[in-house]
């Protein structure tokens, strides 16, 4: 597949922000393909290989999805914010579809109706994080945004600081706190 050009992705993000839900459908396959590319790597990965490479791959995936550095928006901060929301939506939808084993076009004919749905611990955690993040946002929107940018969009501390127009120190303090807060929620 010829990947859509960067300006298309930017265009989709714009449309989605304007309320065009169909734009999300254009972005979803791109995220899924990056997911698959990463997953394929994890399957091949040998235990000795260290995490640095994994991190590089994840960064590469983000760059391929949305080339943060080269985005020409009048307001880069706003762009980061929209992209992070989109990533969150797509990944959470993915987790939800996997956790319930939902999909289009198919029954699960071999399993008994009474059989429990297939669940995946990791993805269930992703859904819990999403829900806990909603609760955090109700208390404090800024800290929730920090999590969205760092966790769902993979932004560094510096990029997050730029997006939110605050200092990196503030981001670190917000992030430390939000993380502790969310982890406490998850353990409840």
């Amino acid at each position: 597949m010829a990947p859509p050009a960067d300006h298309d992705i930017t265009e989709f993000l714009h449309s989605w922000r304007e309320g065009d839900e169909a734009a999300l459908e254009k972005l979803t396959p791109l995220v899924y393909r990056e997911l698959h590319r990463l997953a394929a790597h994890y399957m091949r990965r040998e235990k000795v290989e260290h995490t640095l490479q994994a991190t590089a791959l994840v960064n590469e995936a983000y760059v391929r999805l949305i080339d943060w550095k080269n985005v020409q928006w009048q307001n880069r901060g706003h762009f980061f914010g929209v992209a992070a929301q989109v990533m969150r939506r797509i990944l959470v939808d993915y987790a939800r579809s996997r956790c319930y084993d939902k999909r289009g076009g198919g029954a699960r004919p071999m399993t008994l109706d009474e059989a429990p749905p297939v669940t995946d611990d990791k993805l269930a955690v992703l859904l819990e994080i999403d829900q806990a993040l909603d609760r955090l946002a109700a208390l404090d929107a800024r800290r929730a945004q920090v999590v969205e940018l760092r966790y769902f969009a993979g932004l560094s501390v510096e990029e997050t600081a730029e997006a939110l127009k605050v200092s990196p120190i503030t981001v670190i303090r917000n992030w430390n706190f939000a993380k502790a807060w969310l982890l406490r929620e998850l353990s409840k």
């Binding site: 995220v31 990056e34 997911l35 698959h36 990463l38 997953a39 394929a40 790597h41 994890y42 399957m43 994994a54 994840v58 995936a61 983000y62 990533m87 969150r88 990944l91 993915y94 987790a95 996997r98 995946d120 611990d121 990791k122 993805l123 955690v125 992703l126 994080i129 999590v147 966790y151 769902f152 993979g154 430390n176 706190f177 993380k179 502790a180 807060w181 969310l182 982890l183 406490r184 998850l186 353990s187």
Partner: peptide, 30 residues
């Protein structure tokens, strides 16, 4: 109570996309 939360290697220390990809790699039919 916040100080008792784990601070390293938590589920939030892996980006969401990496988290999802790892689970995808482990699943049936991979």
């Amino acid at each position: 109570s916040l100080l008792t939360s784990e601070r390293s290697n938590t589920c939030l220390d892996t980006d969401a996309i990496q988290f999802a990809a790892e689970s995808l790699a482990q699943q049936d039919g991979a």
